[in-house]
Write a protein that binds this DNA or RNA. Structure first.
Lengths: 207, 207
DNA sequence: GTCTATATGGGGATAGAC
DNA sequence: GTCTATCCCCATATAGAC
């Protein structure tokens, strides 16, 4: 799926084909349920041949998990960085939510594989994904802290708590959102409105 | 874990021991990774003996998935129903969030097993869990619709969208919240404040 | 109720031909 | 680069002793 990284390199098309097939299968079936034989069949290759491209099953999983974070981080970073200097807090947060949801659903096999199987892979593999996760969390924390210091976000909210709530809610859309039936930017604006303004009518707010 | 359902029945202690062990393992390792041998060892019994208590591996999984929804639904229902008649929207939503989070973390092995492996079990097992899921979703939708009709929640919010955001965010806490280090009612109040009032300062709200 | 033993099939990974 | 063949281990489920 992440074609941009390998575009024209000679016969690494096979490398990508294996990775794409594996990501989709991991998302659908879970970590242990997917065998090298299963991946091989989906990638139109024989099981033994996979070991020419990858060191082991865990090597494949580790690469998939890291791409699952990277594609989202890259897209959110690019969208937010390209906003005009006078963008409001609403616009910035909204853009971040749009970017996160768009990448999440665009690279669904990788992102969903990450969300679903991270908690179930061996500890060593989890560890290989931790740095990418921490960096993305830090990105949001910095973004939100800046907006809070400038007075656009309420002073009393805890940034880490909101970031956990936000990313938790966004990632959960992977479990139900159907790209065929809806536009994810509509969903993004919907979620952004709820999170920015809350659900109470004005006379009830603050209670 | 759900002792209340079987309290004193003779030697169904073994039944519960097997179920508890299986739920914990499914949460930690995923559906396919957990073998009958693994469950047997954790429940201090031999693999063949499990078939006296359960029909199959899928029978066990199906029961665990259904309990994972039921324990949360029951607790939220009880807490919200017992609120005084003059409770405000804030108090009702806050109580629902508290109940959901408390049950979620109290019966963590069952609830987390549900969240993590639902998407990875065979379709027939998913189907056996759908009714319980739909009932719990309906419970929240009815609750929120009533509050919207009484004017306490903003008229323009879409109830189903908010319910998806809410339950998605709450369930995601299973992946990071450490019960040893924090009180889940503090977390609940924190999340409730964010969701009820939003994150913008008052002069920015509505934009 | 719980045990041991076993039938049958699939798992990750490697060797060596082409 | 991809193939076939193989090593060795583990899976679910059942049969029948105790």
């Amino acid at each position: 799926m992440p074609e941009h990284r390998f575009e024209s390199r000679n016969s690494d098309k096979t490398y990508i084909r294996i990775l794409d097939a594996a990501a989709r299968l991991y998302r659908e079936k879970g970590y242990t349920a997917v065998s090298m034989r299963t991946i091989a069949k989906a990638a139109h290759i024989k099981a033994g041949s996979i070991y020419y491209h990858f060191e082991s099953k865990d090597d494949i999983v580790s690469i998939i998990l890291n791409l699952g974070i990277k594609v989202v981080h890259d897209e959110v970073n690019q969208i937010v960085t390209n906003l005009p200097d006078d963008a409001t807090a609403s616009e910035i947060v909204r853009a971040g939510i749009r970017g996160h949801l768009h990448a999440l659903l665009e690279y669904r096999n990788y992102t969903s594989a990450n969300v679903r199987i991270y908690g179930q892979v061996p500890a060593a593999i989890q560890k290989s994904n931790l740095l990418a996760r921490r960096k993305y969390e830090k990105f949001w924390d910095n973004l939100l802290s800046d907006l809070q210091e400038s007075g656009e976000l309420r002073a009393q909210i805890d940034i880490a708590s909101f970031r956990l709530l936000l990313i938790g809610a966004l990632n959960a859309t992977l479990e139900w959102f159907d790209q065929e039936k809806g536009d994810c930017s509509v969903l993004a604006d919907n979620y952004a409105d709820l999170l920015l303004n809350g659900i109470l009518t004005d006379q009830e707010a603050g209670t």
